[in-house]
Simulated scan of single mutants.
Amino acid sequence: MRWLHEKDIENIAIGATVLGTGGGGDPYIGKMMALSAIKKFGPVQVVSVDELNENDWVLPASGMGSPSVLVEKIPSFEQLSAPLQAYEKACGKKTDVVMPIEVGGVNSLIPVAVAAMNRIPILDGDAMGRAFPEAQMVTFHLDGLKPKIVTIGDEQGNTVTIEPIDGFWSEKLARNITISMGGSSIVCDYGITGEQAQKSVIPGTLTLAQEIGALLSQTRTASTHPIEQMLRLLKGYRLFKGKATHIERGIQGGFTRGIAQFAGTDDFSQQACTLHFQNEHLLAELNGKPIAMTPDLIAVLDEETGMPITTEGLKYGARVVVVAFPAHEKWRSPIGIETAGPHYFQYPYDYQPLESLVKEHANK
């Protein structure tokens, strides 16, 4: 039996922000919500996917909307609780286990707070293995599961329950409701049985986030930079090193959208990198050519510390390292690429695996 304590939350917040590919919410806000809940209600038990019973009722809890708005509207305990209570009322089932819908600085930790408040366990796994901007971009959708019931709550005490016909309508309806709620909400959706979770959930992602956070926050004693240690752990690649020279960022359609441009330094001098994002980093171009693309993971790290920088936290002049990691195999399937590949976001590229793109650039 494993429990999450305060130090664990610190590390998960860091590691989840790396895996959150620039999105998934501000890690400081997520950390403070989870820490406050644990201090008030006690530590949270963690269960693995293998420990679930077939008939356990597993419910994801997450934040929806622009990360930029969430910084201004931090959810209260009441707002965090309301969607779960509304979901249980609508489906007539008691929640046995809470889970993250995605990995992200806020969205890995909102369910920790919800679990603490309701004194139920949290699942060590999620439905993305990273963060994605839209509600249907989950492994449940890839496996043919539908959300059926979605509950949405805001800081005013409003709670809305919808019954969408599929994940795409869930995204459309919940997004518009979230915009009406001021651009940020708490959501419960895709309630599933333990048996379904064992088939669809990407396992072990909370533990992985915790390992990454421990690696990046350790006292610097090793000769190898923590970024390089993390790349080994995640089988990732260093794509670029440079300085942020131009950032365009705005809230459109309930998302934080934009581009960030960088001028290369050191080994990458005379080179340029552009990142395209919609909450999350979705496309990286090196000298005008793609070097990493969704559904593979792209992250921006502080050059000195290795700490992750979110899309809303990136500032002009920041000195960064851009890294990327292969997506979970579920996302590299035809339906995974159709659901969250570059064409879905209207980028003019066919999906190519990260490994192929890096090799292609290296051979030029």
Rank of each mutant, 00 (worst) to 15 (best):
Y237R: 10
D96R: 03
L52K: 01
Y28L: 10
R232I: 14
I120Y: 04
T139R: 01
T274S: 13
I212T: 10
R257N: 15
Q352P: 10
F240W: 05
G24R: 02
I247K: 12
D50Y: 04
I74H: 00
C188I: 07
Q196D: 01
E6G: 09
T294L: 07
W331K: 09
M181T: 06
R130C: 14
V106W: 01
A318S: 13
D124T: 05
A16H: 04
F325Y: 13
G253N: 15
E304Y: 11
K172H: 15
G153K: 02
A116K: 00
S223V: 13
K289V: 11
G30F: 00
S217I: 08
A197R: 00
L59H: 02
L314F: 08
S76E: 00
D267I: 11
P133S: 10
D267H: 09
Q136F: 11
M33K: 01
N118S: 09
A263N: 10
L19S: 04
K315D: 03
I251V: 15
L142Y: 12
L286K: 00
E10T: 05
S333G: 13
E228H: 09
L215H: 09
A324S: 14
R175N: 11
H328F: 12
V58Q: 01
C188D: 01
K199S: 05
W331V: 08
I186C: 02
I74M: 03
T221I: 13
R319H: 15
E163Y: 13
P67G: 09
G125R: 04
E329A: 09
Y347D: 10
G254D: 12
N55S: 05
V98A: 03
P226L: 12
G213T: 08
T339K: 09
Y87W: 08
G25N: 03
E6P: 12
L206C: 03
L275K: 09
D296L: 05
T274W: 07
V98I: 12
C273W: 12
K235T: 13
D126F: 07
S333P: 13
G183C: 14
C273I: 08
Q85E: 07
S185V: 09
E355K: 06
K40W: 02
E54D: 06
L301K: 01
D26P: 02
E134P: 08
G153L: 08
L84I: 04
L283G: 07
K289D: 11
G20M: 01
Y316I: 10
R2K: 15
S223P: 00
T17Q: 05
N11L: 06
V201M: 03
